[in-house]
Write a protein that binds this DNA or RNA. Structure first.
Lengths: 112, 112
DNA sequence: CCAACATTTCAACAACTATTCAATTGTCTG
DNA sequence: CAGACAATTGAATAGTTGTTGAAATGTTGG
């Protein structure tokens, strides 16, 4: 299931759009985006995320709660630590597509 | 061409992540997301966007400015009106991927 | 040039949100 | 059980941002 050129989203379905916007907004914070990227490779504990991002466990935990509630990440306890990882592969696709968008070499024709 | 499972993003490249987050944050507002979706199909004037979304031209214009600055949309003047459309197809892919993520019916495969 | 239309800009307010620090809960070990 | 470690929670603050209405800019046609 990849992105095709058939975005058929019922524009009157406010629920879907609202849900979509919620997810995009979650990825729209640099700290949260770094957290997601850190969790993409392998399950990682809260402490190590905080360590890698040079942030506080409290802040990381706050963001993790939101990302988990939105089903972007999932959590799994291992002893004293709790490991977070991506819930599925879609987020990776979304990010890759967005990276591709950035990579688009400024196709400037004649903008008015 | 499409999203593969090889998100190779240099985590120390704050510029890239910041740019990514900016784009996600732009898509994270329901009004702005609706505007983007409206512009995906064909070039459309500011007035008609406002009409379809039942919003004010002022508000729409405000969002269009941000979306254009972020190279999500492009503008083209035709007489008195200015038509906006998607700058490339990547945004459509991003949205489709995100829709796929939402549609994922809690697919707990080999979750331990 | 003037009037009508389309869009943009400006200022200002209300609402939201990321961050911090302290306190709490949960878990393992000695 | 007590202590240390790990993570969460709560409240409070500072900064950001979406929205609004009025004014201004730009464009076309009479």
């Amino acid at each position: 299931m990849k992105a095709e050129r058939n975005t058929i989203i019922p524009l009157n379905a406010d629920d879907t759009i609202g849900h979509l916007a919620d997810l995009f907004r979650l990825m729209g914070d640099p700290t949260r985006l770094r957290i997601v990227l850190t969790c993409l490779d392998e399950p990682i504990s809260v402490g190590e995320i905080a360590m890698r991002l040079d942030s506080s466990p409290s802040l990381v935990s706050h963001h993790l709660r939101l990302l988990k509630a939105a089903r972007v990440l999932r959590s799994e306890r291992r002893g004293k630590q709790i490991f977070y990882s991506a819930l599925d592969e879609h987020i990776r696709c979304v990010i890759d597509d967005m990276v591709a968008h950035i990579g688009e070499p400024l196709d400037i024709e004649d903008a008015d």
